[in-house]
């Protein structure tokens, strides 16, 4: 007797998976950890080069793990995938100037009866979403993901941030500091779009975002600079070949 499979699907999702020809085979997981050294007081605000260079191999490694686990189960796709990118322990950074950066990807491996032979895809979309997409002549093309670690110095603004004796009493924007997280998000979203474009997608739907902002350098208890880590990912979608320009859906207004 074959082993029972594990899936995160609820009842409705299982019905949709069945409808759309996705056979659940089991939970799969991929993970990569890299030691990343922190950059203290770089002269200018910019992307944290060391962490940025470490990320792409981490992504490739965790995706390869996920694919290897899924292939072993006889799957040709992973759906409902979740991505978590974090530091293992934020206390390490301040003391050692070094911390482990971790990327985890998990999802449910499925056998997609409609996929082309030799094709393998990993998407955050769940089976019910995939069913709706297919009905509307779209195909899930893969995971689109972008991230950035952006380092921003703001030493000129220290008095405003601390609220101490040198603090200004006025309402005002902290211009230098605003730029850091904003840049991180924009750079990451640009990369996510690039990844989807490379997969031949027309767009990305269901984008999820995660922001982490940490002080990177302090002086006498005041934050002098911050590091922003930003991650966004969604499902890249393609048009079904030969589909007409627009497929009409028939929404109804339910009495609920």
């Amino acid at each position: 007797m074959p082993k029972p499979w594990i899936a995160t699907f609820n009842g409705g999702e299982l019905v949709c998976a069945n409808q759309v020809g996705l056979k659940p085979l089991g939970q799969v997981f991929g993970c990569a950890v890299r030691g990343v050294s922190t950059q203290y007081f770089p002269a200018t605000s910019d992307e944290a080069r060391i962490e940025s260079e470490a990320f792409d191999p981490m992504l490739a490694e965790s995706l390869a793990h996920v694919q290897a686990e899924a292939t072993q189960l006889g799957a040709n796709a992973v759906v409902g995938c979740q991505v978590v990118w974090t530091r293992v322990d934020e206390r390490v950074e301040a003391s050692d100037g070094f911390y482990p950066s971790t990327l985890k990807i998990s999802g449910t491996a499925v056998f997609d009866t409609e996929a082309r032979k030799g094709e393998f895809y990993i998407v955050p979309a769940s089976p019910d979403e995939i069913m709706v997409l297919r009905r509307a002549d779209y195909i899930p093309a893969g995971l689109a993901l972008g991230r950035s670690t952006y380092y921003q110095t703001a030493w000129r603004q220290v008095p405003k941030m601390t609220g101490g004796a040198f603090s200004t009493w006025a309402n005002e924007e902290v211009v230098e500091l605003t730029r850091g997280p904003y840049m991180a998000r924009e750079v990451a979203m640009g990369r996510m779009a690039d990844m989807a474009k490379a997969a031949g997608a027309v767009g990305i739907v269901g984008v999820k975002i995660a922001t982490e902002i940490h002080p990177a350098g302090t002086l006498q208890g005041s934050t002098m600079s911050v590091t922003t880590r930003f991650l966004c990912y969604g499902t890249a979608i393609r048009r079904k070949p030969g589909s007409i320009d627009f497929v009409s859906v028939k929404p109804i207004i339910p009495l609920s």
Binding site: E129, M192, A196, V205, K208
Partner: peptide, 17 residues
């Protein structure tokens, strides 16, 4: 151009509709 969106798939199709 390529679009990005945090709309769910249902929301995306409803906007198109």
């Amino acid at each position: 151009g390529l679009f990005t969106s945090d709309l769910s798939i249902n929301e995306f199709l409803l906007c198109q509709e």
